[in-house]
Amino acid sequence: MKNMFNEKETQTVVDRIKKLNSEAQPLWGKMSVDQMLAHCNVTYEMVYDKKHPKPNAFKRWMLKAIVKPIVVGDKPYKKNSRTAPEFIITDTKNFELEKNRLVDFINRTQRLGADHFENKASHSFGPLTNKEWNVMFYKHLDHHLNQFGV
Rank of each mutant, 00 (worst) to 15 (best):
Y77K: 03
I70P: 06
Y48G: 10
V42S: 07
D49G: 15
A65F: 11
K120G: 08
M62K: 05
G113R: 00
F117C: 07
E96F: 02
V67A: 10
W61T: 12
R108F: 06
M46I: 10
H144N: 08
D115K: 13
P85I: 08
T90I: 09
E132D: 00
Y77P: 02
N100D: 11
S122P: 09
V72E: 01
H143Q: 07
N94R: 06
F105Y: 14
K64R: 12
Q110L: 02
G113F: 03
K64P: 02
V135D: 01
T92M: 07
S122A: 15
M46E: 12
K75C: 00
P127R: 15
V47D: 07
V71L: 05
P76L: 04
R111N: 09
S81T: 12
E45I: 15
D142A: 05
R82A: 08
A84D: 10
L112A: 11
I70L: 08
K139F: 01
T92G: 01
N146D: 10
R108P: 12
L141N: 09
E118K: 10
G126E: 09
V67C: 04
F125Y: 05
G73R: 00
M136S: 08
V67P: 05
K50P: 14
V135A: 01
K131F: 13
H140S: 05
N130V: 10
T90Q: 11
N100K: 09
H140T: 06
F95L: 08
T129I: 07
N94M: 05
F58Q: 11
I66S: 09
A65K: 13
V135G: 00
S122T: 12
W61N: 12
I89K: 03
N41D: 07
K50Q: 15
Q147L: 03
M46Q: 14
F95Y: 09
N41W: 04
E98F: 04
V72C: 04
H140A: 01
D142L: 05
V42T: 14
N107H: 12
Y44H: 12
D49F: 13
S124D: 13
S81V: 06
M62Q: 14
G73M: 00
I88E: 13
H123Q: 14
K93M: 10
L128F: 08
R82F: 11
V47A: 11
V135F: 03
N107I: 03
F95G: 03
T129A: 08
N94F: 05
G73W: 00
P127V: 13
V47Y: 12
T83P: 00
N41A: 10
K64D: 04
E98Q: 14
I89M: 00
F58M: 10
F87D: 06
D115E: 15
H52M: 12
E96M: 07
F137W: 02
D104C: 06
H143Y: 03
G126Y: 06
I88L: 13
